[in-house]
Design a protein around this nucleic acid. Structure first.
Lengths: 122, 122
DNA sequence: AATCTATTTAGCAATTTAGACAATTAACTA
DNA sequence: TAGTTAATTGTCTAAATTGCTAAATAGATT
């Protein structure tokens, strides 16, 4: 379960253009955990696996991308798994499900006219 | 329809603790467009209407809250309507519906294994 | 052991952000 | 018109963020 600070961290991570694009490409571009033979060979993104591969698609230095990936990882938006000397990157779909649920509930409660008592702490 | 930069602006706005709490209280605390007689009189938040009323709940100076509200408005998260010498603040539920839809689609497409072609521009 | 590949860490500069207070604007009220 | 209330704008400072290059680490490979 994500608490308030987890959610703020997620939004902060997605509130930067470079990180948003990395996020977007990891999720919708189909970055896989390893070379994925089910994906067309000419789809470079489907074949992308690691920090260097991701960095190739951006006009920023590798350490910059590395730091952005760390921030996405710390926000639980992606997972990074070390295997041998490479880091395999995957979307963290559970976090996205939770966030989707939060906005769904927000809209539903608003339409139902649910009013919570004032609380600045959670 | 929200484009990529609209979304980034929304996440940036929500990625700050103070703004997140303002947002949260406006939405789930039931800030209304005017004094709302259907809400219990002792629920101060249900009665909150304007910049000053919101600012009272935070330990920051009024101009600071005013600037945060402007950022939430610019991100289309809230609406601010001037009437006489007060600004009436309301949640922008349409934006939340769109964001909810984005995350829903993201999760659904991921589970369906949909792979988009690489695109850094949208 | 020496080298190569993948990634992170250290440290720096430029920019942005988040807060403050004072001053200003806008509109109401006496 | 003078004073009051509601909100914004200008300007400052401190801290955080985002980028960079160079150096370090970790794990292959030769």
């Amino acid at each position: 379960m994500l608490d308030m600070h987890d959610k703020i961290k997620i939004f902060k991570a997605l509130g930067n253009e470079t990180r948003f694009m990395i996020f977007k490409n990891i999720f919708t571009g189909g970055y896989a955990c390893s070379i994925d033979d089910t994906k067309p060979k000419d789809d470079i993104i489907a074949q992308a696996t690691c920090v260097t591969s991701i960095a190739e698609h951006f006009d920023f230095a590798l350490p910059t991308i590395s730091r952005h990936l760390k921030e996405l990882k710390d926000a639980k938006i992606i997972t990074m798994t070390k295997s041998k000397n490479k880091i395999y990157i995957k979307p963290n779909i559970e976090t996205m499900k939770e966030i989707a649920g939060c906005f769904k509930t927000l809209v539903e409660d608003y339409e139902k006219g649910v009013v919570y008592q004032y609380d600045n702490t959670k």
